[in-house]
Design a protein around this nucleic acid. Structure first.
Lengths: 167, 167
DNA sequence: CGTATAACCGGATATAATCCGGTGATACTC
DNA sequence: GAGTATCACCGGATTATATCCGGTTATACG
């Protein structure tokens, strides 16, 4: 008898589910009635599916996308960080410190040459200097390199759900 | 007489507006009644403010945040691209080509050479090999370097609206 | 001091979300 | 192959919410 399956109910997503996810990803505040119309369902089964997708964790949350430049975050920079050694002590300390700098909106630990890649959203380059000073002073940081974003060619618009079909 | 001001009505955002933006950024599908409660307003002025924030472009759109790994995008890589020259022909061609690769979810032109930084969401490393082959074959690409994300320490949760107060 | 403007409130109405009973299709059992 | 359980769906009823509107208060400005 397999017990573990009792906990997580596995359900494969059909085409309607994928359409719902794709629609909500782009238009998260659409009414359920309108969503139902788009995916060719009536309101009740549609809301049932949405609820299920939420409960099963496919949808993590909803959010508003704000205009960065208009709200004082028109400058984006990426910073590569190298730490002085690879003990988990140093890593944990750094992670914790970085999480406390709000302008750091992403932090990735990466393989291949350096250790962390940070993405920062800032009002201007003055702010960059201030924040960089904070970052290079963190314990363990021995090297850093900044890439200033000149032009946002494509910004994150969510997962390319249809893309994996073409692989 | 200044004509240009007639087109764009400038309004400074007060504390209530900022609270609305912050709340909607984290909980985009909250009801207007609940939002009003959170920012200490009744329903009607609250929805008026939201509508205005939308029309004035502070809120660009709403969206659902989906679980990447559960939907077949558990692998994230950054790819740094160098192009062979700086003519706008080459740039435009590259940008256009990159926009047509759906797994490329972000593309930034960065300072310091002829570089682009791409962020890709993929199901696995097999897919990475397939897509990388497509990218390096694009006209003008002479150098590339990949950073594979080992651990997502902090993922993008929107703009740190309160952060600029501390600068 | 008077007036214009802006933001707010609360109630009325329109719209949407949610609930619920019933139906048809599918798959599984005997 | 008949019976039964399960699932997804529909449409109507109910509850909740969004939206509209008139009236009130506060503030800025002449």
């Amino acid at each position: 008898m397999i017990v573990s399956q009792a906990l997580v109910k596995i359900r494969t997503l059909d085409r309607i589910d994928m359409n719902i996810l794709e629609t909500l990803q782009r238009e998260g505040r659409i009414s359920n009635v309108e969503l139902a119309r788009r995916v060719n369902l009536s309101a009740s089964p549609c809301i049932d599916r949405v609820k299920r997708l939420e409960q099963e964790g496919y949808i993590e949350r909803y959010g508003a996308l704000l205009n960065a430049s208009r709200l004082g975050f028109g400058t984006t920079v990426f910073i590569q960080i190298t730490l002085d050694n690879t003990t988990s002590d140093v890593f944990d300390r750094f992670k914790n410190d970085v999480l406390n700098i709000p302008h750091v909106v992403e932090c990735h630990m990466v393989a291949g040459g350096f250790d962390y890649l940070l993405k920062l959203r800032l009002p201007n380059m003055d702010a960059y200097r201030t924040i960089l000073a904070q970052i290079v002073d963190l314990p363990g940081v021995i090297k850093n390199h900044t890439y200033v974003v000149i032009e946002q060619v494509k910004q994150d618009e969510g997962l390319p759900l249809k893309a994996n079909e073409q692989l």
